[in-house]
Amino acid sequence: MRKIDSYAHILPKAYFDKMAEIAKDKGAIKRWLTIPVLYDLDARLKMMEDFPGYQQILTLSNPPIELIAGPEISPEMARLANDEMAKIRDAHPDKFPAFVASLPMNNVPAALEEMERAITVLGARGIQVFTNVNGRPLDDPDFWPIFETASKKYDVPVWMHPARGAGMTDYASEEKSKYEIWWTFGWPYETSAAMSRMVFSGFFERLPELKVITHHMGAMIPYFDGRVGPGLDQFGSRTSGEDYEGLLKRMKKRPIDFFKMFYVDTALAGGKSGIRCGLDFFDPKQVVFATDCPFDPEGGPMFLRTIPQAIDELNLPQDVQDGIYFGNALRLLKMNCC
């Protein structure tokens, strides 16, 4: 069966080498050095041979460009990443039918220029952002032109990936997060916080056609639907010093209905209950298949097995399953073939 992996990560070799050269904190790229499928295209193609019908939409892997390069260098890094992903797509269209553009988010004018080049010249099918830009929220007014341009001018989806490191502590008394809590639970929280900021700052009211694909099945939102629904129907009742109740009255929908406007993927490491929960909350037409390849204990192939197994065991109607595996991605990316 055809499967389009809408969130597969890559560090093209030329980009990877440049990233390793300029990265000030070698510890920040420690994990990436140990996963050949991430930067070795031949290793990736060999792995994919074991999965007939499997294709990948290429997205640049962590770390965010703006984390490793200042605003003077980040535009060059984004151009390199996008050029290399376009070359991979062109050389192997049967395996990689599309790629998503990376942007130098710490240089907004350059990000807008690169978005135009990547979409109109290279044929990128969307853009990727992270849940914060070196600690700044995505609803910072400086970043608004990026979302407005993606939605209004190009009508392309926005892939949103969590970004949170050990420096974001679990307790105020400590200097770093312990036991990789920053990743296991911090990333779902980070994604949920970014989604909330978009909802309450009016992203979907000002850009009703905006399509944001959230990684990991919408993070915490489906599981906490009661808090997001009836809980946020009481928005403002817990807060003084801010007119949140007035904001709630001005919103054109219930908060939970805005959260339902996000798109989500199945990259939950093979967890069947989480996928079921996500499908109960989001319209199945807004769910795309994704594996998070190659970030599994085997360095690539494990989630390509376990996530389809989890989806198949849900015994979904055939049209719903087809939509998740390939139909929704084709529609979202405006692709009719490949």
Rank of each mutant, 00 (worst) to 15 (best):
G300D: 10
I65F: 08
N107K: 02
R89V: 15
L80N: 05
D139S: 15
E148P: 08
D139W: 14
F96H: 02
I311H: 12
I221G: 06
P36M: 00
I4G: 04
T306Y: 10
R238F: 08
V108Q: 00
L268C: 07
H161W: 09
G126M: 12
G323M: 05
R79N: 13
A8G: 02
A310F: 05
Y54G: 06
G202F: 13
K153P: 04
P222G: 09
R227D: 03
P208E: 07
V37E: 15
P97A: 03
A150F: 10
R136E: 13
K176V: 04
D280S: 09
I35Y: 06
P93K: 05
E84V: 03
R125I: 07
T266G: 09
A194V: 05
W144G: 06
F235G: 06
D233L: 05
D17R: 09
D17V: 10
L279Y: 04
Y15G: 01
M195G: 10
F99Q: 07
I324C: 06
K272G: 01
N132S: 14
F303E: 12
A86R: 13
V121S: 14
A78Q: 09
D90S: 13
G165Q: 04
P308G: 14
P104T: 01
Q128P: 08
F281G: 03
A8K: 00
